[in-house]
Simulated scan of single mutants.
Amino acid sequence: MADESGDGASEEGQVPEREQGVEFGEDLSNALEGHDYPTTTEELVSEYGDYELTFPDGETRTFEEVMSIQQGGDDYEEPRDVQQAVMNSVGSGAVGREGYSDRGSGTAPDEEDQESV
């Protein structure tokens, strides 16, 4: 179950409503958490294929569209495995700016300018 802080964090094994820019939504997150595991791609798509995922650019795709990239015979032991499969399927273009980090480069801008002088 997601914590009460409102930041979308979740306990281990659970699918947060938003992960790396992909919005699963409360309904799909709850459905995946309540699903019986282990399970397969085919079972998940059959149950939840019409649910929509929303990406940072506002684009939406159905769970079925995203999961159709998965190879047949995939088994999932817990909800986080499904979430990881979604992230692997959508690629870096759907999860935000490539190479972006809010942690900084570790070198202050003034230090870089002084090195080039």
Rank of each mutant, 00 (worst) to 15 (best):
M1T: 06
A2W: 00
D3T: 12
A9Q: 09
S10T: 14
E12T: 13
V15P: 02
P16V: 05
E19L: 15
E19V: 07
G21W: 04
E23I: 11
F24A: 00
F24M: 00
E26T: 12
L28M: 06
S29C: 10
A31N: 10
A31C: 12
A31H: 03
D36R: 15
Y37H: 08
Y37P: 10
P38F: 05
E42I: 03
L44P: 12
V45N: 02
S46E: 14
S46T: 13
E47N: 14
G49P: 11
Y51G: 02
F55A: 07
T60D: 04
R61V: 01
E65A: 08
S68D: 13
I69R: 13
Q70A: 12
G73E: 09
P79M: 01
R80W: 03
D81A: 12
Q83K: 10
Q83T: 01
A85M: 04
A85Y: 00
M87F: 04
N88L: 06
G91Q: 11
V95G: 04
V95E: 10
E98I: 12
E98Y: 10
G99T: 08
Y100V: 01
D102W: 07
R103N: 10
G104V: 03
S105L: 07
S105A: 06
S105Q: 08
A108Y: 04
A108S: 07
P109D: 07
P109M: 03
D110W: 11
D110T: 08
E111V: 13
Q114Y: 08
Q114I: 05
Q114G: 01
E115T: 07
V117I: 02
